[in-house]
Design a protein around this nucleic acid. Structure first.
Length: 293
DNA sequence: GTGATTTGACCACC
DNA sequence: GGTGGTCAAATCAC
């Protein structure tokens, strides 16, 4: 596994502070804790934005509110990026003691590392830098996806779904993503957490596939998805990637209990990616800043 | 009828 | 043989 090393790899302890008192595990835990809180904040802000913006009339005030939401999310994303850099720095400094942490990072960013050291698999996306994210709302990220496959893996309780850009044929967009429900999500704060891995960058343009993080139309489309009687032509908006959760599909909400509908509306209306970034580079950060807001 | 999703099969790699 | 990713026919929803 190729490690990312921070330039400041040697550690100097200030007077009166021993390595024991500066337990690296505490540093890691602090990073995780803070990143977790930021992730929560991002999720809540995106959810709040999805609720508030559609309720506002399209005027200067709504634009201002949208811009404020954007700024908040930008700040948190930047803070996350800074923490990530610090976290990587600590990992590099503590090769022997942070085995578990490395395992975790390896699991998240496995694909990207494979590309660095192994020949390209035919089916693996050549020249593409995957981005792994955790989010309770994996479907909506400002792009339109079409599901083309699903696989149940022996080691995992939940199947993995494969999506490609809706405009793959029209515009030869090579972007794909995989969505997998996390096993440990049951009982957590969020009902479900998903690991979303993006491969390749979008080359498509137009047709709602452009960068428009604050585009109100996206929010409207998302809000409509839960009540729209039409079948969604955009996998990312309505359908759930997992068969056992097809009841969550917006089209199938009709006839369900109000509680379920309300809950699903929340998560579908707020189907914006609240990214918990764990490993990303500059363009990936750019993606986070644009899509996460 | 059209378009999206599902699902088993297939391929390449390890 | 297991795994990850993709393909394509069947199926579904409108």
């Amino acid at each position: 596994m190729k490690q990312r090393h921070h330039p400041n790899n040697s550690r100097v302890y200030p007077p009166g502070q021993s390595p024991a008192s500066d337990d690296p595990s505490h540093v890691v835990c602090d990073h995780r804790s803070v990143m977790k809180e930021i992730t929560k904040e991002q999720s809540l802000v995106t959810q709040l934005r999805a609720i508030v913006l559609p309720a506002l009339q399209a005027d200067e005030r709504s634009e201002l509110v949208a811009q404020m939401f954007q700024n908040i999310l930008d700040c948190s994303s930047k803070a996350m990026a800074e923490l990530q850099l610090l976290h990587q720095s600590d990992d590099a400094r503590n090769d022997d003691t942070q085995v578990d942490d490395k395992k975790r990072l390896r699991m998240i960013s496995d694909d990207s590392n494979k590309e660095d050291v192994k020949p390209h698999h035919k089916h693996k996306r050549e020249g593409m830098h995957p981005l792994s994210l955790e989010t309770p709302v994996p479907h909506y990220d400002g792009r339109q996806w079409r599901k083309y496959g699903q696989k149940k893996h022996q080691q995992r309780k939940n199947p993995r779904s494969y999506y490609r850009c809706t405009y793959r044929q029209e515009q030869d967009c090579k972007a794909t993503k995989t969505v997998q429900q996390k096993d440990q999500s049951i009982g957590s704060d969020h009902p479900v957490m998903y690991t979303v891995v993006y491969h390749g960058q979008h080359t498509c343009k137009g047709n709602n596939c452009s960068d428009s993080g604050t585009d109100d139309s996206e929010t409207k489309t998302t809000m409509q998805s839960s009540s729209d009687s039409q079948q969604s032509s955009i996998s990312g908006y309505c359908s759930d990637p997992f068969d056992h959760q097809r009841s969550l599909d917006g089209n199938k909400l009709v006839g369900k209990s109000e509680d379920v509908i309300a809950e699903n509306n929340i998560y579908q209306a707020c189907d914006m990616t609240a990214f918990a970034s764990l490993e990303f580079d500059s363009w990936e950060l750019d993606v986070l800043l644009r899509f996460g807001a």
